[in-house]
Design a protein around this nucleic acid. Structure first.
Lengths: 203, 203
DNA sequence: ACCTGAACACCGTTCAAGT
DNA sequence: ACCTGAACACCGTTCAAGT
């Protein structure tokens, strides 16, 4: 890449980062080019689709979230690790409105520039979930795809202003359902789990 | 209203109905006017905002859903009534993409034309929920606002193509969490409830 | 009283012309 | 190689002019 091209590329990403924080995933591409002081065609040359731009923007964050999933898995109990990671993701999407919704659209489209990011994230979640399931701390009847959809739904909910005040509460509701539900399949002492049923999960 | 105005009004609603089925809540207003064979200003005269158009379109459906909630409450067990109603709503939004998301945005805005429709729907759900809670069949720690948010999230999930295959499963997950969680607060025989915990709710 | 459509300010996307 | 911006086909919204 030529030096001037590289400069434009970096500048575009810099500006796009701000624009996503302000406008979410449906940021105006025209506006990005304008703010970067670059022709509209230059943006399209570097990032042929909106997905390509977001992918360049999110790749490192998502790798970080995947790494963090593994770190959490090493550090603590499987159920707490899973919930802590869910919180991290939803916190992340809070400053990246609509990104997870876009990923829901891209996850089955192998041609999408966001595809591999989606898969990375889903896999990291699936590993955490599987570990919790092996230990009997999570429902057996959900898989990584279900978890990804639940994350997306919770993130979407947090984006809705009218649900903002309830977001934590509803997160706890879903998290506790995720964690306390699987006791039928695995032989844990029923009492310790059922005494917890119905209570929102607490950090 | 003059006869010609009435004709335009009806024609616009007729066309808008189709357009919503095809394009969801973000239907092109220009396209509606075009298809109705009417000037763009005429559409804005009758429906000054997008919400006003959707409200006119949805009012009777929502009144129907509220009535149905009460009918279900009379007809059967409170837990089954609640879940059947959730299914109805989510089924309805399936052919009205984005409407519930729009209502999430309008529910706290009293100036929105959709406000009263939101409240009607939320109240109907709140009544069903309260009845199930009185009978100890639903969690105590959720209210009508929480339920409305959960409905919206589930409806949103169903709109995502990649989650379509899991939509029923995830609905069951949430519904069972809603129904089996409240046993801590109310004095039901714990065994009958806990034997159900973890199983997806079944119609 | 009601209707029309041009006008304005925005989009996303493409591509001929320039350096 | 790379950049530019006009061009095209869309939006939502407003409003002067018509009947």
């Amino acid at each position: 890449m030529r030096a001037d091209a590289k400069k434009n590329f970096d500048r575009l990403l810099e500006v796009a980062q701000d624009a996503v924080a302000e406008q979410g995933a449906d940021l105006s591409l025209r506006d990005v080019a304008r703010r970067a002081g670059v022709g509209l065609g230059t943006l399209y040359r570097h990032f042929p689709t909106r997905e390509a731009l977001l992918e360049a923007l999110l790749r490192s964050s998502f790798e970080g979230l995947a790494t963090r999933a593994d770190a959490l898995a090493m550090a603590g109990p499987s159920d707490q690790a899973l919930v802590a990671w869910l919180r991290d993701i939803i916190g992340f999407t809070h400053s990246h409105r609509g990104v997870l919704a876009l990923m829901m659209g891209a996850i089955e489209d192998e041609a999408s520039a966001l595809h591999s990011s989606c898969v990375t994230l889903r896999s990291a979640g699936a590993r955490l979930l599987a570990r919790a399931q092996r230990e009997g701390k999570a429902r057996q009847d959900l898989d990584g795809t279900d978890l990804f959809a639940l994350i997306a739904a919770l993130a979407w909910l947090r984006e809705q202003p009218s649900a903002a005040a309830r977001a934590d509460h509803l997160f706890s509701f879903v998290a506790s359902a995720l964690l306390t539900g699987g006791l039928g399949g695995v032989g844990l002492p029923g009492s310790s789990e059922s005494s917890r049923a119905g209570k929102p999960f607490e950090r």
